[in-house]
Structures are given as structure tokens and as C-alpha cells.
Simulated scan of single mutants.
Amino acid sequence: MKTAFFFFALILSTSFTASYAQTAEEIISKYLTAMGGGEKLSKLEGIKMSAKVNQGGMDIPLEIYNLKDGRQMTSINFQGKTLKQGVFDGKDLWGTNFMTMKAEKSDAEATAMFKTSLGDFPDPFLDYGTKGYKVELVGKETVEGTETFKIKLTKKPYTIEGKTEENVSFYFFDAEDFIPILVESEVKVGPAKGQISQITMSDYQEVDGLFFPFALGQGVKGAGSQPIVITKIELNPQVDPKEFVFTEEK
């Protein structure tokens, strides 16, 4: 029926743009509705995801925390030890160095880049206009057999090595369900600089009236991805604030 509708609209329209029958703003509105609604999302205070990744045939458990005030953390349980990555306590960004097994702060540039996304919880598209973000419908694109709307999201720019760099991501929304199945962005720093980061999302499930992907994949375009299986999602979890605080190790 959807295909027939678009075909009929194309016949009636004298404008190529109208054949999309959607605008970027409409797509984002339908996306937020499909996820459970902007009102419910705005009331979230935090999300805890229990997950696992497979490395060398071994399932490694993770706990991922994202809080409304910007604090976040990924806690990894590996061989009886707890390792932390991507921890932000409201001021410092830090994580465990896998070589020294000690906590280390990220440099000022990485911390500043991270802070450009503060306020994105629980979703960068929620009230995106008030954040100064811009959305643009690039067009339609087929992703692994699924027809999608490709949306360009432009956020606050980065400052890297003293130069202003654009902060752009491309979201691919399923054209029928209006849920994102792929996010692409250019890697700006590190060994993969210049390559395209890809995050895939699938197996959406309901949690207390909101919908979240329970299957994720993260990697670099053309080089495969690391699958992450979400086993449980808790909304508004109780978290000890001390878990986020950087502790100098000697």
C-alpha cells in the first residue's frame, strides 16, 4: 500500500521533492512517536543497559549508563576485574588504560569534543531545534534491502587542533517504521581518522512504553562491526555517584 501511495503521489505531483511525501521534520516527528513519544522521552532521568559482546568465543558482560545530567559510563567485567570506559562525571572524561590497568583522564581536546553532545540525552533529535541542531532530508537510500530516509544531523562543531570541524551524522530511518537502522559519521581523531564510523540498530523492543534497539553493531565502514547484544534495559536506575568519579591510582 505504501508503494502504491508514493506512485500515485508522484503522478499527481509536478515537483520531484514532493515525491518523498515527507520532510525531515515530519520524519523526526514520526520517529519520536514510534519510539514512545517525546513527552515520555523527556521525562527520563537515566538509562542502564546490560549487554554482552563476544571476543574470541567469550561473552564479556557490560553495563552502560547514561544519565540526564550528562554523566555516563561503560563498565566491563573481564576476568573478575571491572574496567571502565567512556566515563564522564560531569567534569572529567576518563577510562581504564588496558595496558597499565589504571584510570586515566582523556586529554582536553577529547573532553571538549565529548561535551559538544551534552544535553543529547535521551535522544539528539528530541527538541533538536532548541539545541541549535539542523536536520536535512538527503534522500532515500536502500540499506541491506531496506528502503530508508537518509537524514543529515548537524550539531555544534568540534574544535580539533585549533581548527573548527563540522559535527555531522547521517541517520538512516526505515521508510515504513520510521526507526533508525544505521548511523554513519566521519571519525575525526585517532587511528581511524578520516574513516566512516557505522552503528547499526535492530531488534527494537518495548521497555515501559518506550522502544529501544536490543541488537547493536559498531565498527568502521568496510571493516566489519562488533555486535553488541542488549540483555536488559532499566529506566531511571539508581546509581552510586561515586562510580563516575575519577580516582587517581598510584
Rank of each mutant, 00 (worst) to 15 (best):
E184A: 02
Y171D: 02
V187T: 10
F178H: 08
Y171G: 03
S169R: 15
Y171L: 10
D177Y: 03
F172N: 03
E165W: 00
P180A: 08
T164Q: 15
E184D: 14
A175H: 04
E165N: 13
E184R: 13
E186G: 01
F173W: 01
V168H: 00
F172M: 12
P180W: 09
E161L: 03
T164D: 12
K163A: 15
F170N: 03
L182C: 06
K188P: 11
K188E: 15
F178W: 06
E166L: 12
E166N: 15
F173L: 04
F178G: 02
I181H: 01
V168E: 05
E186Y: 04
E161D: 14
N167P: 13
E161W: 04
D174R: 01
V168A: 01
G162L: 12
S169V: 10
K188S: 13
E165A: 13
K163G: 08
N167L: 02
V168I: 14
E184Q: 13
K188L: 15
S169F: 11
K188M: 15
E166H: 06
E166Q: 11
T164E: 15
V187R: 02
F172Q: 07
K163W: 10
E186K: 08
G162F: 11
F173K: 01
F170D: 00
D174Y: 07
E166T: 10
A175E: 09
G162K: 12
F178K: 02
F173M: 05
E165L: 02
D174V: 03
N167G: 10
D174F: 07
F170P: 00
G162N: 13
E176P: 01
T159P: 00
I179D: 00
L182K: 06
F170A: 06
I181S: 06
V183S: 14
A175M: 05
L182A: 06
E166M: 09
T159M: 09
A175F: 01
F178C: 02
E166F: 00
V183F: 00
K163R: 15
A175D: 09
F170V: 03
T164C: 12
E184K: 15
E165K: 12
I160T: 12
S185E: 11
P180H: 08
N167F: 04
F178M: 11
L182S: 07
V168D: 01
G162V: 07
E161T: 07
E184M: 05
I160W: 09
F172D: 00
V183R: 14
D174S: 01
T164N: 09
K188Y: 13
S185G: 08
E186S: 01
D177E: 04
G162C: 14
T164F: 05
I179T: 10
F170Q: 02
Y171A: 07
T164K: 14
K163S: 05
E186R: 05
A175L: 03
V168P: 08
N167I: 06
I160E: 06
P180C: 02
E161I: 00
I160Y: 06
F173Q: 04
K188V: 14
F170C: 04
E166P: 08
E176R: 05
T164P: 08
V183H: 03
T164I: 14
